[in-house]
Design a protein around this nucleic acid. Structure first.
Length: 560
RNA sequence: CGGGGCGUAGCGCAGUCUGGUUUAGCGCACCUGCUUUGGGAGCAGGGAGUCGGAGGUUCAAAUCCUCUCGCCCCGACCA
């Protein structure tokens, strides 16, 4: 393609709404434009990147025997009502009515639709297994679209669904996907981790996420470099560092107006890990006191798995239920249910004394209070790995893909069943697997850029090479560039030629911004000596090559 | 949905506190001409703005008040 005729609106200054690096660079380099919050237009360069990614997705999905189909974006409510998600999902679903008043929604995901299909078409164990996929637009009325293309209300997703006769079959399909995903993310040039994840509302027991490390990511994962334990902090387990031994006798100490662990800790000059943090929550079955160590955070999701839905108690509720104002509550002498993190089993602690402006020092768990012991803390850096006890790291990541074992969550309500060898009717066992191409693109930029712009991995760059004829008024430059352009195209190399009548500086700046991996620079002086520069976008290193050797050299570079 | 910030030319911003000095200004981009041509050129000339919208206060509003819409950030939420 010729730069002069391709629509590549680069801008020097970053629009003020952009914060994330990928967002800034995609705007500046002319890849996308924002229509409204969470709605993006992909310009020619941006589309080329997405298509490159989609091609890799298709190749790897086809390689595991998945078959591409396409399903509607507009869905009738009935199918969603049958699985209960019409009611379970709240404002995040775009809902509308057709002209006859029939309830409809825009697809956030396609489990319902594909299961509907399977329920009508699959009858025998001979029809299984199947893996069907599509690359289709999803719509979600996100509470907070953010970070450019990373979290949007409308986005493309490669979603595949597996159908098997039993758990073993599902395990195979799941593993096929895990392997395919490793290949996909590797081919796209991403650094990534496969981590254990919370199956959440998708149902099922097992789920993993493919996470691309980046400060722009909203998810945190706990990682063990020693045994490769990797889990989203939403469910990561960890063993906190043991706190030092103390021999405190029980005593009450005056702590006027000191309520938070931080306040009391600095007032008494004792580390937060010597404290018990007591948090009162209200569950459907009554109030529960949750205890974690002072240096820990209470993990709401872990607690939910034990006591069900709950919310923190308000200040007046604390006083009413425990008889003390918040800030001075301790675990002793309460009749309500107490859940405590296991790390509190060892040691003696400081906590509220259950009377205003006093804390109690020398509390011995199990002796001074009883509790049910469950892991309810948030894993943090320098905690120890639950599997091998090595220290954990915490990293910010972008969720680029996920895989779920669904089981029969959708096949039962939608009656997707088959007859086995014995003529018995059984529910199909399903899995669901997603990848967001835009997130791959954004993560690639987050992981590969410098102060001048994007540095695309070769596999997903919009073009293989960019030709920069520096002086378009020099006939020789133009002639050589034109020939080179044609020769490269004949070799099936994707070329962008900056044939604009711009100054050299402008071309260099734009080329760096856009981030095509290899640049071919045609300068007047070099050409007189029969030489052309081949420059690497990432290292900025340039080699001078004889004109006739350029095509060969470029081909070599693209392969490597 | 809670907290915060912003909305002035295509983009980035100043002006708003303290109303009138401005026919609303600057840089970049854009158009014309000449010069220039290896890291976002120089000179000269030019086009472009209902100051997000509505209502109000006032002799007078980009500026003060009320409401409203939009965008961004933090949190909640996230199949």
């Amino acid at each position: 393609m010729r730069f002069s005729t391709m629509f590549i609106p680069t801008v020097r200054e970053t629009p003020s709404e952009a914060e994330a690096i990928s967002h800034k660079l995609m705007l500046r380099a002319g890849y996308v434009r924002q229509l409204a919050a969470g709605l993006y237009i992909y310009l020619p360069l941006g589309l080329r990147v997405i298509e490159k990614i989609n091609r890799i997705l298709r190749e790897e999905m086809n390689a595991i025997g998945a078959q591409e189909i396409t399903m509607p974006v507009l869905h009738p409510a009935e199918v969603w009502q049958e699985t209960g998600r019409w009611d379970a999902i709240g404002d995040e679903m775009f809902r509308l009515k057709d002209r006859t008043g029939r309830d409809m929604c825009l697809g956030m995901t396609h489990e319902e639709i594909i299961t509907w299909l399977a329920s009508r078409e699959i009858r025998s164990y001979r029809d299984l297994p199947q893996i069907w996929y599509q690359i289709q637009t999803k719509l979600r009325d996100e509470a907070r679209p953010k970070s450019g293309v990373l979290r949007t209300r409308e986005f493309l997703m490669k979603d595949s669904y597996s159908f098997d006769i039993d758990e073993d079959g599902l395990e195979k399909s799941y593993q096929l996907h895990a392997d395919a995903y490793h290949k996909i993310f590797s081919r796209c040039g991403l650094k990534f981790y496969m981590v254990e994840s919370d199956p959440g509302m998708m149902g099922g027991a097992t789920a993993h996420e493919f996470m691309a490390p980046s400060p722009a990511g909203e998810d945190e994962v706990a990682l063990c470099d020693s045994c490769r334990y990797a889990a989203n902090v939403e469910l990561a387990r960890s063993t906190p560092k043991a706190s030092e031994e103390r021999n405190w006798a029980f005593e009450e100490v005056s702590t006027p107006e000191k309520r938070t662990v931080q306040e009391v800790s600095s007032f008494l000059n004792l580390k937060p890990e010597y404290f018990i943090k007591s948090i009162l929550v209200l569950s459907n079955s009554g109030p529960v006191l949750a205890l974690v160590r002072g240096d820990q955070e209470l993990h709401e999701k872990k607690l939910s798995k034990i006591i069900g839905e709950h919310r923190p108690a308000h200040k007046d509720e604390v006083k009413e239920i425990l008889g003390v104002e918040a800030g001075f509550i301790g675990p002793m002498n309460h009749k309500i249910r107490i859940i405590a993190d296991p790390c509190l089993k060892q040691g003696v602690y400081v906590s509220g004394a259950n009377k205003p402006h006093y804390h109690a020092k020398g509390i011995t768990p199990s002796k001074d209070f009883d509790a049910e012991w469950h892991d309810i803390h948030v894993a943090k850096a320098d905690d120890f790995c639950p599997k091998c006890n090595a220290p954990l790291r915490i990293e910010h990541t972008i969720e680029a893909g996920n895989i779920f074992k669904l089981g029969t969550k959708y096949s039962v309500p939608l009656k997707a069943s088959y007859l086995d060898e014995n003529g018995q009717e059984k529910s199909i066992i399903m899995g669901s697997y997603g990848i967001g191409p835009a997130r791959i693109a954004a993560a690639a930029i987050e992981q590969n850029h410098d102060k001048d712009g994007i540095i695309w991995p070769k596999s997903i760059a919009p073009f293989d090479v960019e030709i920069l004829p520096l002086n378009m008024n020099d006939k020789n430059t133009v002639n050589v560039a034109e020939k080179l352009y044609q020769d490269l195209i004949k070799k099936d190399i994707e070329v962008l030629m900056d044939d604009r009548d711009e100054r050299a500086g402008v071309k260099f700046k734009d080329a760096d911004l856009i981030g095509i991996p290899t640049h071919i620079v045609l300068g007047e002086k070099n050409l007189k000596e029969g030489l052309i520069e081949i420059k690497d976008r990432k290292t900025k290193e340039a080699e001078k090559v004889a004109i006739e050797e350029v095509v060969g050299r470029v081909k070599d570079r693209i392969k490597n």
